[in-house]
Design a binder for these strands. Structure first.
Length: 707
DNA sequence: GCAAGGTC
């Protein structure tokens, strides 16, 4: 007897092997780990996939791609070479097997991962023999229970997984191809265009926000403030005053009058302990504290996990079940003096604060207790963030005292608020955020204070803010678009295609025009509707009320009509999209008066050239990794670029004679929050102004765009 | 080349 267990990933195979036997032996085949164990004379081999091992690919050449089949992932994607060893290991080690257990995650994708591994690596026969382990956590109890009570492999669930892949492929690949072809036919130029069930609605959310901003009409309002003796600034209780006459009336009323303290309200409120991190909240926090984009956070977290320092990062759980053994983890962390200082303050027995969100397969992100050595700077930052957050979850609630003071000047009501921390609690374990620390002025009810100055500030209402990568991820999560593992990637595709740019995500002409075009030819792909429709259809297949093949056939009819429609109008579509693309690539003005354009050809390095080519032959090469800035060179008016490590600035024309290549962190002012220097920083997605005191002070502001 | 979904 030889039994094979197939798991979704290497970490899972390790846990499953050790749960089934204390004597599992770890072996390697072509550097792929697997486990062997003996049970009453029966040999069991525990094997691992690495997520999907197979991917869809066209089987026939043609303009419309409707025939697809599974091929090994490494054949399609050259960056996935490591997958070959995993497939080879499964093929080789399952040769003489007679029993097959499918032990991948119990969800649609997991079911399909295991099914394809069985079908294409172990052979068709293995599918018929296979049984399914169903577990929700990788604890010894759950695994043993699932092993002893296997269920039959649900082929409806498999079909539903296949349908999801095929539908996404047919819609995404075909529409993308037709858009790109339109540009090619109309202009003989290649620009990579794409559309998909998730990326297009995501872009559409950004376009909608852009339109809101565009149509926003600012409204003037006034804020009236009173500077009092004792360094107090009180605000008029009405807040925004939209009528100038009202503001003037208030000013007349308060003129030359003292302030009387009417009421002082002292209140203590809890500052509750935070939740442990799930992937989305980690991405959000690392963005706001360190400026890491979500993709970067995900990559670093993946490395920390692979090295064994932190737990599995692709989780939506905010739970820390007892089974992870947190007393032991906290004890191990105490080997570091800095962590010990905080762990020692925790009250026993340890009880974590938990959020509502759960995950079928993984707990919240936490350190394992294995201490990292020699981490790169950014990895160290993220590791400490995860670890301090983990410790703080066991801390005590903080306590903030609020002083709310009502006062009158003439017959007008003013108010000011001060906050101070009376108990740090968990904030001692989580040293990343500013702690409230205002002075409470020594005043009592009935006191009369001198008014030093009355200020009337004229302001304007502001349009809704643009999304940044962190807030966009939160929005996608809210709408159920994409998955925790794919959202960061989807956003990065929008940048790569030049649909959007900037830290505060701004849609380019190309992005906006693409959505306009698709709304004409395939309204559905621009909205969340398609995701909702897929969900219903997959539900139907899973319940046995619908057939996978029928649903795919229906989709083909629908897609054919969309594609034929695009085909009929391809010259117009192609020309317009190309025009929008050119406009998106404008980076400044050429000396000849025409536009300078970033030329990003699929062959060769990107460079800057004139839109007046061939009349004007000006071109400028770009150093590797250069970002073109909105700021102009003070000598020759061409745009400046920022490049290299550490970031330096130079003129686009390196020969223009501009002095110096000062570092990009030039001082541009004083931080209104903490008084430190404000410096210009630049990231991959553009420039912004930040505080020198970062991360203690998190003040940032965008650089005004000159238009 | 093109999607979205797993994972190293």
């Amino acid at each position: 007897m030889h039994e094979i267990i197939i798991c979704e990933k290497p970490k899972a195979s390790e846990k499953i092997a050790s749960a089934l036997s204390g004597k599992a032996i770890k072996k390697n085949y072509k550097r792929v780990p697997y486990y062997e164990l003996q049970n009453n004379g029966k040999k069991t081999t525990v094997l691992a996939a690495v997520g999907h091992l197979y991917s869809l690919a066209p089987t026939k050449r043609g303009k419309k791609i409707f025939d697809v089949d599974w091929v090994p992932l490494y054949e399609k994607d050259k960056s996935k070479k490591y997958v070959k060893n995993y497939i080879d290991a499964i093929k080789k080690l399952s040769k003489d097997a007679d029993t097959f257990i499918h032990a991948c995650d119990y969800d649609i994708e997991g079911t399909l991962i295991g099914y394809n591994a069985l079908k294409y690596a172990c052979g068709d026969e293995s599918v018929n023999k296979a049984v399914r382990m169903k577990f929700s956590t990788l604890t010894t109890e759950d695994i043993t229970e699932a092993y002893q009570n296997p269920i039959t492999l649900d082929l409806n669930q498999v079909d539903s997984g296949i349908a999801r892949h095929v539908l996404d492929f047919l819609f995404g690949v075909n529409i993308s191809k037709y858009l790109t072809d339109s540009v090619m036919k109309a202009t003989k130029r290649y620009i990579q265009l794409s559309a998909g069930r998730v990326q297009t609605p995501t872009l559409s959310i950004l376009v909608d926000r852009e339109k809101e901003i565009h149509k926003f009409i600012p409204e003037p309002y006034w804020l009236i403030k009173a500077r009092l003796e004792g360094k107090i600034t009180a605000d008029h209780k009405k807040g925004k005053i939209f009528q100038k006459e009202d503001a003037d009336g208030i000013l007349a009323d308060v003129e030359n009058k003292d302030a009387k303290i009417k009421k002082i309200d002292l209140k203590k409120t809890k500052k509750p302990r935070p939740f442990p991190f799930d992937l989305g909240s980690l991405q959000s926090e690392a963005y706001s504290l360190f400026g890491f984009n979500p993709k970067k956070t995900q990559q670093i977290a993946q490395n920390l996990y692979t090295e064994g320092y932190t737990s599995y990062p692709r989780t939506s759980s905010q739970k820390l079940p007892k089974s992870i053994g947190y007393p032991k983890i906290l004890k191990k962390l105490s080997k570091s003096a800095a962590f010990r200082k905080q762990v020692d303050k925790l009250k026993k027995p340890y009880k974590p604060n938990e959020g509502k969100k759960t995950d079928e397969a993984h707990p919240a992100i936490h350190p394992t207790g294995s201490m990292p050595k020699g981490l790169a700077k950014d990895s160290q930052k993220l590791y400490e963030l995860i670890t301090y957050r983990f410790i703080s979850v066991f801390g005590e609630d903080g306590l903030v005292e609020t002083m709310k003071t009502d006062l009158t000047i003439g017959s007008q009501n003013f108010i000011f608020t001060r906050k101070r921390t009376v108990k740090m609690g968990w904030q001692e374990q989580y040293p990343f955020r500013k702690v409230e620390n205002d002075d409470f002025p020594p005043i009592s009810e009935g006191d009369v204070l001198k008014v030093k100055k009355i200020i009337s500030e004229e302001k304007e209402t502001k349009p809704p803010a643009r999304y940044n990568q962190a807030s966009l991820i939160r929005e996608l999560e809210k709408r159920g678009l994409g998955t925790k593992s794919t959202r960061a990637n989807i956003i990065s595709i929008l940048y790569d295609r030049k649909y959007v740019e900037g830290n505060k995500i701004k849609v380019n002409f190309l992005g906006e025009h693409l959505i306009d075009t698709l709304k004409k030819y395939s309204q559905k792909i621009t909205s969340e509707e398609l995701t909702r429709e897929f969900e219903e259809k997959l539900e139907g297949i899973m319940g046995g009320e619908a057939q996978k093949d029928n649903i795919i056939a229906e989709a083909k009819v629908e897609i054919t009509s969309i594609l034929d429609d695009i085909e009929k109008n391809k010259l117009k579509i192609g020309e317009e999209l190309y025009d929008a693309y050119r406009k998106s690539m404008i980076v400044g003005e050429c000396k000849c008066g025409k536009n300078l354009i970033l030329i990003d050809s699929p062959r060769g390095d990107p460079f800057v050239g004139c839109s007046g080519y061939p009349e004007c032959k000006s071109t400028y090469s770009l150093p590797r990794g250069a970002v073109i800035l909105k700021t102009k060179c003070e000598k020759c008016d061409l745009p400046l670029i920022s490049y290299g490590k550490p970031r330096q600035r130079a003129c686009l024309d390196l020969k223009c004679g501009r002095e110096g290549r000062e570092p990009t962190n030039e001082v541009v002012g004083t931080c209104p929050d903490c008084g430190n220097e404000l410096i210009k920083r630049s990231g991959r997605y553009g420039e912004f102004i930040g505080c020198r005191g970062f991360p203690k002070c998190r003040f940032t502001k965008s650089i005004e765009e000159k238009s």
